[in-house]
Amino acid sequence: MQTASPSRFYWANFGIPLACAAVVFLMFDMTKIDIAFSNLLFDPVAQIFPLDKVHFFEKLTHKWARIIPNWTAEIALIGAILSFVWPLVNPQKHPRLGGFLERCKAAPVLRFTHAHRRDFLFVVFAFAICTGVIHFLKAHTSVYCPIETTLYGGKLAHVEWYNNFQLFREAGDGRCWPGGHASGGFTMLALYFVARRYRWRFSKAVMWGSLLLGFIYGTARVLQGWHYMSHTFWAGIFVWLACLLTALAFYGRVRLEKPVLQKLERAEQVAQPQVAG
């Protein structure tokens, strides 16, 4: 989120997500809205969520959808590894090897990864930390998915996450809160912070696109009965905070809060006096 001062930066990037967390907690966790919405998707006669039985929907939204975050993480990891290769090549000391890499078009790739080592490492760490945070919360709240509970034909009791939360040990076998599939889409927010580092004019589009992807992933699982809607919101909040803290560690606040180049260029144009022809 683009800001112009430290206080606005912290308010926008920490305050808004925390305010959203309070709203989600009061609106969903303290009410029956989640259950009421899932009831609309459940067939009480057949005791199933109809979309959970559609093979193509499952493959499209759960299997194939993983390609985007999975490939992003893999590319970032490969880039991070390759970023250490170019200094080892050292074309000045090994001109033949350097010449070979230039001829086979590998040298530009190695130079690029070396120049952007911090960015590749940030994406790798951000993905890993986000995944770790979500898995920690799943294990330490032990919430079962709607389809597994007695509310929708399952055998386990419906329990809210705050009733089961254990900080220092696993709370049980449930692994449904927050939404894991949604978090996979939300982890693409790591690319937004890379874009902010370089003040890319389309950084906001990356942010909104990542948020949309996470909500699509999460909603698909809600339709299948494997999550409540609030699980998606919680996943987005935790992933945002994890990415933000990781970005602050890698890039620092000053770099992240600078305006995008497009806005800066416009401001400079307005500030310049017009010269009469």
Rank of each mutant, 00 (worst) to 15 (best):
G185H: 06
G99D: 13
F250N: 00
P69E: 00
Y10Q: 09
I237N: 03
H231D: 15
A106L: 06
V260N: 15
S203P: 11
Q47A: 09
A242K: 01
P44E: 11
F215L: 15
V89Y: 04
P17Q: 05
V270N: 02
Q262C: 05
E257Y: 00
L97T: 05
F14A: 09
I16L: 13
A107L: 06
F233H: 04
S230V: 06
Y217R: 00
E102Q: 05
R118A: 09
F120E: 12
I237T: 08
V45N: 13
A190E: 08
G172F: 04
S38F: 02
N163V: 05
V194A: 02
V89R: 07
N70W: 11
W200C: 14
L212H: 12
L223W: 13
G15Y: 12
R197V: 06
A139C: 07
S142K: 04
L245Q: 05
S230M: 02
L245Y: 01
F168M: 09
D173M: 14
Y144V: 02
R169W: 05
L41S: 03
N39T: 10
I68E: 04
P178I: 14
P17C: 03
Y162N: 12
A80T: 06
A19F: 11
I48L: 11
T232W: 05
V109K: 04
R253A: 11
A21W: 14
A139P: 02
N90G: 09
G214Q: 08
K204E: 12
A19M: 11
V275Y: 06
M30S: 07
K63S: 08
E148M: 15
K258T: 14
M27P: 06
N70L: 12
F193M: 09
H140V: 13
F100H: 06
L264N: 08
L18D: 03
A271I: 12
Q92A: 15
G277D: 12
W200N: 10
L244R: 03
E257F: 04
L189W: 08
C20W: 09
R103S: 02
T31F: 00
A128C: 07
Q272L: 13
A220T: 15
L256A: 05
Y192I: 13
M229E: 09
E160V: 03
A247K: 00
T3G: 01
G179R: 02
Q262N: 05
Y217P: 05
R66A: 13
L41W: 01
R221P: 01
A73V: 03
A235R: 10
S210L: 11
L51R: 06
L156D: 01
P50S: 07
K105G: 00
T72P: 04
G179I: 03
E74F: 15
A126D: 08
S38P: 00
A247Q: 07
I67H: 10
I134K: 08
R201H: 15
L256V: 01
S83H: 06
A247F: 04
S203T: 12
W234V: 03
F28L: 11
L256R: 05
T232S: 14
A271F: 13
A182D: 00
I35Q: 13
V85W: 01
A36M: 13
F84Q: 01
P273C: 10
G184P: 00
C176E: 03
Y144C: 01
R266C: 03
E268H: 12
S203H: 15
